[in-house]
């Protein structure tokens, strides 16, 4: 019995590239967690001070708000990055069966540029979190 032979790359290049995208998402989430942690700390700090009127520092609410914005930006950039990864992994999966046409597997410049821009935005959120840290 003969079955159609699907030519697969012996080096599993598309699979390795897909895993590389997954690792990148995990690294982004690790960076996010620290930014969210900063916001959570500021929130609990503000609550603790709020229960003792008079000790409330001027500008604490602004810091909490600013750190919240940083956390939201971090969350958004990770969603964008995850969308880049998902679209890329989909292309790689679909291209596994057609190794003969390299165009089917090649990364779109737009995807990589978006991923790169998302990390710059995450860096801005990180700088904000450092500047506003209480």
């Amino acid at each position: 019995m003969t079955s159609p032979i699907v030519v697969r790359d012996p080096g599993l290049q598309p699979e390795r590239t897909a895993l590389s995208w997954r690792r990148t998402i995990m690294s982004a989430i690790a960076a996010d967690l620290f930014i969210w942690r900063g916001w959570a700390h500021a929130l609990t700090d503000a609550n603790a001070r709020g229960s003792m009127p008079g000790i409330l520092h001027a500008g604490t609410e602004n810091h909490v708000l600013g750190l919240g914005v940083c956390a939201m930006v971090a969350c958004l950039t990770t969603i964008v990055l995850a969308a880049c990864a998902a679209s890329r992994i989909r292309v790689l999966r679909a291209g596994v069966g057609s190794m003969g046409q390299p165009e089917n597997l090649a990364a779109s410049a737009l995807t990589l540029r978006t991923a790169s821009a998302a990390i710059v935005a995450l860096a801005i959120a990180a700088i904000g979190a450092i500047a506003l840290g209480l």
Binding site: I35, R37, I119, G133
Partner: peptide
């Protein structure tokens, strides 16, 4: 780059 970002915020906190 992401490790540098995570490291920067982690050291700060």
């Amino acid at each position: 780059a992401l490790a540098l970002l995570a490291g920067a915020v982690a050291i700060d906190q």
